[in-house]
Amino acid sequence: MEFILGHLNYWFVIVLMMTGLYIVISRGNLVKKIVGLNVFQVSVFMLYISIGKVTGGTAPIFPTDLQGKIQIDPTIVYSNPLPHVLILTAIVVGIATTSLGLALIVRIREEYNTIEEQDILDQDAATAHAENLAHGDAMGGRA
C-alpha cells in the first residue's frame, strides 16, 4: 500500500507523458503535434519536480527579516531546489522549441496551404513522383 501510494504520483505522470507522446505521434495536425509535445514535456517536468518533493517540506526560499537578513530555522524542511532549477531551464527550452515549431507551421501553411501531415505527405509524394519521372531513369537503369 505504502509502495503504491509512494509511487502513484509517478504513475500518474507516466500516464500524462504517454498521452502527450501519443498525441505527437498519432495526430496528423501540425499544431496539435506541438500541443502534444507541450503536454509531453510538461509531464516530464512534473516527474522532475516530484523527485524534488520532500514530505512536509516547503519551497526552498529562506525566510528573511525586515532587513533582508536570512533567518535560519533548523526545523523547516526544504524541498530539493535542484530539480526546480533544471525544470526552469527546461521550460525555457520548451517554449523555444514551441515557438520555432509554430513559426515553421506558419511557413508550411503558406507553402502547402495545409497544416495536415497527410496532405503534406501527399503533396511531397506527388512532387517526388514528378521528380522521379523527370530524373529517374535517365541514367540508364536503376543500378
Binding site: I61, G68, L88
Partner: peptide, 8 residues
C-alpha cells in the same frame, strides 16, 4: 533573490 522569479 528573495521571492520566486528572476530574469526570465
Amino acid at each position: 533573490d528573495f521571492s520566486p522569479g528572476g530574469g526570465f
